[in-house]
Amino acid sequence: MFAYLVRRVIGAVILLFIVTAVTFAIFFLVPKLGGATADDLASRYVGKSAGAAQIHETAVRLGFTDPLYEQYGRFVKGLFVGQEYNYGPATEHCPAPCFGYSFLTQQPVWPDLVARIPVTASLAGGAAFIWLITGVGTGIISALKRGSVLDRSLMSVALAGVSLPIFFTGLLSLSIFSYGLGWTAQGGTNPLDETNPVWWAYDLILPWVTLAFLYAASYARLTRAGMLETMNEDFVRTARAKGLTERTVVMKHGLRSALTPILTIFGLDLGLLMGGAILTETTFSLPGIGQYAVIALRVNDLPKVLGVTLVAAFFIVLANLIVDLLYAVVDPRVRIS
């Protein structure tokens, strides 16, 4: 078990390096193939009317004139031992894990990420809780009442949920519940500024529900399909043959199996969201990882992009690992001895 864990962790670290290397390559190699020089790249990070000399100075400052492997090496070194950064009058030490400094704002990236992860975690966690309960619940009811009016109407709502984009449902709900009725918080409030958990939840309830609606819809469809499949399994027939009540048959025998694949998807979805719920965070102006990614990408700010990529990849890898371990708990057949 321990050896398995170690193997998985090593694999995950290697994967993270590949992810950063690919991000690095996309950022530098693609423009290079298009014929861009180091100065061309640097010209993105100077003021409107900078001259060639200033552009070149910036290229040197940002290290674009060095070979690519050296730049990547610096980045990796920063992650493990930190790096020195010249901010003008002096240099400062950016301690490990140093994700570098923004090309544009010259702010260190790591503290930004650390400040934003809890926002995204609050959003993703709360939404996940809601969608798991409502989505799976709806799915079970639909499966058991298959073909009924209830089933059809629930599945129509679910189809709407899957099809409607967040910025539509988000803006609509904001304009109704926040600006219209004044029941919920406006966008742009940082839920983590609240000390009282009730206000924290108040700030987040609309984003939660909006995000959960999207996921609940697909979870309802998944649960329904899974339940319909498992309820035809032999072991469900056995459970019935034992004389168990229908409730026990469904909840203990049917659902348990139907939920296992959903657990996998749930873990991955949650991991993916932890790397930033881009649309939700943008729509509700929540200062999370997703919003940071948008800001970084819009201005081609590589250190920020790398930071976000690494954090997102980390959570996905972590979620994968947790799902695999949980799977062993849930399904004795895959238990590792």
Partner: peptide
């Protein structure tokens, strides 16, 4: 010093007399 403070306009860089290339107060 546009390497450290890259964003502002360059009017003073362009007009001031005899400022050496790469001048930086730092």
């Amino acid at each position: 010093d546009k390497a450290t403070l890259p964003s502002g306009p360059t009017y003073f860089n362009d007009f001031l007399l005899d400022v050496p290339e790469g001048f930086s107060v730092y």
